[in-house]
Structure formats: structure tokens, C-alpha cells
Nucleic acid binder design. Structure first.
Lengths: 338, 338
DNA sequence: CCTCGCCGTCGAAGCGCTTCGACAGCCTGC
DNA sequence: GCAGGCTGTCGAAGCGCTTCGACGGCGAGG
């Protein structure tokens, strides 16, 4: 492995000049720069990351803390991760992958040992224990999610409350007055994962504002969970005309179940899903849906981290506006039936 | 951030002694060790990763090159990644996440700049361009997959050829003689992803050995793809009694389709799936399946990397024996119907 | 009793890079 | 014509750690 000294010798300059060519922090004449770059190319020189980190206290590495349980929401998590890695590379950074279950210790390990410049966390809980730990780190962090006390920490996410509102407004606009919510699994609520909470309170609020009759229900994974949830909702709101589904796993079995029991979508029952686009269009019925813009959120998280790193200003809470795409799962209810 | 010198001062020893306490590379008296450890704990000392890498030429980081397209096999990829990260942590390593689409350049970047000690790659193609690049690196690498020319590079995977054989033997053992294979999407074959090839040739071989009548067909994603594939298979082998399905995405729509057309599983048609356990049991019919042991493979890959790193011997090709779990999707064909 | 060897510790030399201050040469402006 | 300011380059001092050789002290063996 050639070092910067080898390059310097080959180009007939001092090592510091090579460094300045690389970093652009001082003016270098075009001629010298060309010679240095030629030498770099010829020798196949790559600066040693450790040495660089030691001298500059910058690693050009981001930590991504992902929930690597395999049970839930896998495609969405993957989309976030993909977006983060891609965006990081676009800013000349690499990504160190941590699992959520390492908890606080993992964060501290990579931060204290200066392995990363900044951290991006996913799957935040309402009173996430990692938040106070993050505050103690010298590295900045960006959350994908919105825990209760996030003062001083940058947060990025879809505005789930607005998404719930949007879903209800859409349905109300089509004349629906009696609407059920099929929520995430009870486990998600128990963890107080922030998006579930926010969606739920947005839903209840909008339900009141729009003067709708609604019932909400978490939904265990699997066909049985869906059956139970739907039965409960039906029992409490027998004449409902629409469902909002905030649970990707449940979509498929739910549609199967409705089909099996002879309820047609959208003729007998309308559906608005909150899920990634590709999930919405891969169902037997193309679903009117509000996208979970994992790609945008991931990219924005990285961008925010970069701004933080070079001392630019950031908006500490960025909630992306939801976008509803109309497909074929909502019908207009004629005024006489309302 | 305290340095090793701060610790040394606090403990009243020299920095090198602290280092030896940390690494255990030289004997240190119990008393001194205790003092040093106390100082470390009190100051909250964490060695600087860059400095360490510079001095020792070890980073304690593994590169994981994952195919981060979101389209296909997401849960399996996630399982591999989870296993790799967990196993790496168990060996005191962290994981740097690279995407496959950075190609050769990405590998060279992290390797030449000494960011990682070893590399683990997934989703290898038959004549993967990255192989020659890997050979040129000073870091060892472990492949999850089995490309054509893998001499000198450690490979780990499920033995897909044996899996195909096992599936056919199981079905043949139950009296099935006419069997269709629903394979991965044409895109997977086009890329010559190694598992698809290996499964297919194992299938054809076993089909000949067992003297079966079989037809094989790739399968585009989506319900339409499944419909086409099944129609083709039915046309070529009208009286088939069983299907081997090596395509997770296809399972669900396939079962739907069979159900819709009144073909019962397993009464009218038997199925053996090659897929992760949890997928097999999440279907409307519990599927007899051969597991894709992502967790074992990922763990083994890391273990192999570790052996390579500390100069122990490794088996350069480790193909894990497939395990078939009988559930409820295969029936015995009575001799009179064969 | 002396020597040998081992145990436990220290000091110093790097690992490969960045960055700061210095400085030579040149152009500008008065 | 000369002070002052640029421009482009160099040298050296670290960054925080590991590791090698050295060495004092002590027990064992002859």
C-alpha cells in the first residue's frame, strides 16, 4: 500500500502538498496538482482511513441504527436503509450498521471510540432510553421518528398525524361517516413506537373534527389477527363503510378475508392504506394509499446529518407532508346512504 | 475524550502498560491490572478506533456487501444481514454496509483505505466481476454463494443442488412422478445468480436419476407472472401432481390461483417450497418446505472470516446440507394412480 | 554465591495523515 | 522603488495507539 509519502516522492513535492491537493484546503498550482494526481493514479494511492481519522478527527462514516428484527415491516426498513446508504455515499460517507438491540451501549461504543461522525436512528419509541445517551455524545444524531422529548435532536419523519387526517378527510369527502382503523400490532403500540401513536392521535382528532363515527383496533399479525380485529370493528360499528389500514402485514389477509366473506372493495367497503407505494399496487385491488416515503425520509436524514456536521443550520423537526394517491379502493357514497 | 495517556497517568503506569492490559499481549500483575481497569472505568476511556487501526493495522470492522434492491427476497436478505451483524458483534467486530451496486469500486475503496479487515459478499453471480477484484485485495473475503471460479476464496451457502434433489426425492417417495418447478424470476436467471443455477441443475439431475417427468419454468413476480408460469407448466405436463416452488414471492399468488381454480393443496396438487421457515408457515396452507437457513449461513460466513483473519484453517467451500420439514402440503399418491 | 532466565514494566519509535506557521517569490499600489 | 499582500509550497508537530527492545528484580539451579 503506497502512502502519501510515496506519492509525494513520485511527484517531487512534499507530503503536505499532496494532502492539500486531496483536500483542496489550500491553493495548489494547476501544474503541481496534475503531477500529484498522476502520481496518485499511478501508484493506486488510497489514504488510510484510520490515519486520516486520527489526524483530522473525521471518519466519514455514519452509524445507522436499524431494528433488525425480522418480524415486522421488513421492506420499509430496507427502504430506509437503502436510502441512507445511497445518500451517505453521495456525500462521500460510509455507513456502519448497528442493531437496535445493542441499545445504548452500542451507540456509546461507536461514538466514544470515534468510529463515526454522526448517527441516524430508526424505530424510536416514545420515551426512548437512547435519547439521553445521544445527548451526551459529541457526535450529532438524527432520528427517524419523533419521541416525546426530542429537544435539541434533529428528527425527520412522515407526518403521521397529518396522514391520518388526510385519510379521514379523503373518506369523509367521499361521503363516508362510519370508519374503522386497523392499526399496527399491539406489540408496536406497547413499544410506543412513535409513528403508531402519532397516527392514532391524528386519527382520533380528525374523527372528532370531522364529526365521524370511528372505531380503532390494533391488529395482530397473521390471518387470525386480522379476523379478530375485523370482527371487533364490525361489532362496534356494524354499518361501517370504510377502513383505514395502517398495517402492511394485515393488508393481504384483510383483503382475502373481505373477499371470502363476500364484501367487495370498494363497492361494499372502501379502503385507504398507509403503506409504501409498491405494496399498495401489489394487492389484488389497487389500493388508494398514503405513501410511506422511506426513500425521502432516509435521504433527508442523511442530508440533515451532513448539515449538522458542517455547522449549517437545520430545522430540528421535519415532518414530511403526506401524499394520498387515489387508486381504486374508495367509492363515493351517494348522499342518500350517508 | 480521555486518551491512553490520561489513563496511564491516573493509574500511575506507562501508556504501554495500559495497552498491554487492554490487549493481554503481555503479562501484567493482577494489582496493576486492577488499578488500570479502575482508571479506565473512572475516566470512561474508549480507545480511538482510528489510532488503533493506524498502529495495529486492524480495524475490527467487516464489510458486508448486500444487494439493496428492494424488489426481491427482502426478508431473506434481512435475515442474512441480521445474522452477520450479530455474529460480527460476538467477535467484537462492527459491520460496514456496502451496496452491491457500488460494484468493484466500493470494495476497492474500503479495502485500500483500510477501513475493514475482511469482506462478506452476498448475491454472487456466476461470473461475478467482483471476484478478480477480491483476489487482488489484501483483506480476505467470504462469499455467500458459489460463483463459477471461486478458487482461493471462501464460499458458504445452502447446498441448493442438494436441496433440489431432496425436494424431488421427497415427492418421488410419496409416489409423485410428474412434477413442475416454479423457479425464480427470469431476471434472477439472467443475472445468473448462483443459487438459481445450482438449484436448477440439481433439479434436472435428480429428475433424470429418479426417472421423473418434470418441467421447469421461471416465474415473473406478481399474480400475472404466476398465472403464466402455471399455465405453461400445465400445458407441458397436463397431469402433474406436484410443484416445487423456488420463489418466495410466487408462493402466495400461486396458492391463491390454485384455490381460485379449485385445485386443492395437497389433495389435488402437492407442493414443496424452498423458502425461510416463517414464510412457509405463514401461508394459508402450511407448506412442506426446505428452509433457507439464512441465519446459519450468515453466522458461518462471519466465523469463516474470523478464522481467516487469525490464520486458522478454513474449508474453502462449505455447502450446508438442506433440511426438509414436512408439513401439510404433500400427499401420498396411491400406487394405482402413478 | 553467581548466573541465568523469567516476570512485569517502561520508553521510544513509529503507523500515515492533517494542519499550522513559515517563507520565498511575485504582483500591486502609492 | 518599496512596503504589503497574495500565491504556492515546505517542514514539522502532532493525532492516540501498538509494539519492540531494554531492563531491574527476583527465584531457581549449579
Amino acid at each position: 500500500m503506497p502512502t502519501i509519502n510515496d506519492v509525494a516522492r513520485a511527484a517531487g513535492v512534499s507530503p503536505s502538498t499532496v494532502s492539500y491537493v486531496l483536500s483542496g484546503r489550500r491553493p495548489i498550482s494547476a501544474e503541481t496538482r496534475a503531477r500529484v494526481q498522476a502520481a496518485i493514479a499511478e501508484l493506486g494511492f488510497h489514504p488510510h482511513a484510520g490515519a486520516r481519522a486520527l489526524a483530522s478527527s473525521k471518519t466519514n462514516v455514519l452509524a445507522l441504527v436499524a431494528p433488525l428484527r425480522v418480524d415486522v415491516n421488513v421492506p420499509v426498513i430496507m427502504q430506509f436503509a437503502t436510502a441512507v446508504v445511497t445518500a451517505a455515499r453521495a456525500h462521500n460517507h460510509d455507513v456502519l450498521l448497528l442493531t437496535k438491540d445493542e441499545g445504548t451501549a452500542g451507540l456509546e461504543r461507536v461514538a466514544h471510540s470515534t468510529m463515526v461522525d454522526a448517527l441516524i436512528l430508526m424505530d424510536l419509541e416514545r420515551d426512548d432510553l437512547r435519547i439521553p445517551a445521544l445527548r451526551r455524545l459529541k457526535q450529532p444524531s438524527v432520528l427517524i421518528g419523533l419521541p416525546a422529548d426530542h429537544t435539541g435532536i434533529a428528527c425527520v419523519d412522515l407526518d403521521f398525524a397529518a396522514a391520518a387526517r388526510l385519510a379521514l378527510e379523503h373518506l369523509a369527502g367521499h361521503g363516508h361517516r362510519r370508519i374503522g382503523l386497523v392499526g399496527p400490532s399491539p406489540a408496536v403500540y406497547k413499544r410506543q413506537t412513535t409513528y403508531a401513536d402519532r397516527f392514532l392521535s391524528g386519527f382520533l382528532e380528525a374523527s372528532a373534527t370531522l364529526d365521524l363515527r370511528t372505531v380503532t383496533h390494533p391488529c395482530e399479525p397473521g390471518a387470525a389477527g386480522v379476523r379478530d380485529a375485523l370482527a371487533d370493528i364490525d361489532a362496534q360499528l356494524p354499518d361501517l363503510t370504510a377502513l383505514v389500514v395502517h398495517n402492511e402485514e394485515a393488508l393481504r389477509p384483510l383483503l382475502d378475508l373481505l373477499h371470502a366473506s363476500g364484501r367487495r372493495v370498494p363497492e361494499d367497503i372502501s379502503i385507504v392504506a398507509i403503506c409504501p407505494q409498491d405494496v399498495a399496487v401489489s394487492m389484488p385491488v389497487d389500493l388508494t394509499s398514503i405513501d410511506i416515503p422511506a426513500h425521502d425520509v432516509g435521504t433527508l436524514a442523511v442530508e440533515t446529518a451532513m448539515r449538522l456536521l458542517d455547522g449549517r443550520t437545520v430545522e430540528y423537526t421535519r415532518l414530511l407532508a403526506p401524499r394520498l394517491v387515489e387508486r381504486r379502493s374508495c367509492r363515493e357514497i351517494s348522499p342518500s346512504h350517508r
